[in-house]
């Protein structure tokens, strides 16, 4: 059983670098021979969550844990939190700023996308911050043949 853990920082409103964690995770998974379909699934989840930290939070930290049979990514930010998780999970619901909207975000589809692609997802939030955990199961079918 082998497991590797990588940590990244995410800066508030740093849209120029947004997508870096998704891109590095994509590369690492591809190198390990995981299939394009599987890699795409993980990439979508990581990208949406990463962007949310960039555009909606004061900044945070991401931990990527790659084990033999799963990859788990935890996004932890330092606020301002989500008032209603139920609203946030609803397709089309968004509080995106003008800045975020100008950059092509704010459709209110990110969290629903994450829910759709991941095998496990928990979202907890308070004024002190939001924690999102997503996990993808790795089975034999997830490898390139």
């Amino acid at each position: 059983m082998e497991s590797t853990i990588t940590t990244y920082n995410i800066e508030r409103n740093d849209i120029g670098n947004a997508g870096t964690v998704a891109s590095l995770t994509k590369r690492a998974l591809k190198r390990q021979g995981l299939s394009r379909e599987f890699v795409k699934t993980v990439t979508i989840g990581v990208y949406e969550a990463e962007i949310n930290v960039v555009i909606h939070s004061y900044g945070g930290e991401v931990t990527v844990e790659k084990a033999d049979d799963y990859i788990e990514i935890i996004f932890k930010d330092v606020g301002p939190g989500i008032e209603s998780i139920e609203n946030a999970m609803t397709e089309g619901w968004s509080t995106a700023s003008k800045y975020a909207i100008e950059n092509g975000f704010g459709a209110g589809m990110g969290l629903p996308n994450i829910k759709a692609v991941s095998d496990e997802m928990d979202l907890h939030s308070s004024k002190e911050g939001t924690t999102l955990r997503i996990r993808f199961y790795i089975t034999e079918d997830c490898y390139e043949r």
Binding site: I44, I51, G104, F105, A107, G108, M109, N113, A116
Partner: peptide
Amino acid sequence: SDLMSHVMGFAET
């Protein structure tokens, strides 16, 4: 599309 999360959610490789 002009909305990134629509692209992420619905476009294909």
